[in-house]
């Protein structure tokens, strides 16, 4: 059971830093074609920002921001986005994950459609990685049964 830290300096600095870390993670995901990074790395940074919130603000307050149902939903939604783009290409008479065929739907040339398809796949990967990282961390750090603790708060 992770409790809230009673130190105001650590709490304030973490609260200031978390949104900027998340914006940086979005930059790493979106800019993954040209610089180091991509879906997995951006997802890890997003997960690390939530872990920072978890170790400074405690489990109860973090669950108000991201409920466990949402985490489970996210972890399957990313896989759904990844596989959905792949199957969409199959339905348009291409191979699995053949992004060039997406130009019919998006109404843009095939080269631009390829870039958009890769971006969609990386967004799916990052959502899954973030949700699975948070879920692993909460599962390890809650050694005891905390369903009773939830009812009290």
């Amino acid at each position: 059971m992770i409790r809230k830290t009673d130190d105001i300096i650590i709490r304030t600095v973490a609260r200031i830093l978390v949104p900027f870390i998340q914006i940086y993670a979005l930059y790493v995901i979106m800019h993954g074609h040209y610089s180091p990074g991509g879906g997995f790395q951006g997802g890890v940074i997003l997960g690390a920002s939530i872990v920072l919130l978890l170790i400074t603000h405690g489990l109860v307050e973090t669950k108000k921001k991201i409920p466990e149902k949402a985490i489970a939903l996210f972890s399957s939604m990313g896989v759904f986005i990844y596989a959905g783009i792949g199957v969409l290409c199959l339905l348009l008479f291409g191979n699995f994950l053949d992004y060039g065929k997406l130009s019919v739907i998006l109404n843009i040339p095939p080269a631009a459609a390829r870039a958009m398809g890769i971006l969609g796949v990386e967004i799916g990967v990052s959502i899954t990685v973030m949700a699975v990282m948070i879920s692993i961390f909460t599962s390890i750090s809650t050694a005891e049964d905390h369903s009773k603790y939830d009812k009290e708060h």
């Binding site: 992770i2 973490a14 870390i21 940086y24 790493v28 610089s35 180091p36 990074g37 170790i55």
Partner: peptide, 24 residues
């Protein structure tokens, strides 16, 4: 350096979170 500066930023971030977690 335009590549390595991103890696450096992430390294600083993970170093900070790791130290806080160990202290906690």
């Amino acid at each position: 350096i335009d590549m390595f500066v991103d890696i450096s930023m992430v390294y600083a971030l993970l170093n900070f979170i790791g130290t806080l977690a160990a202290a906690k």
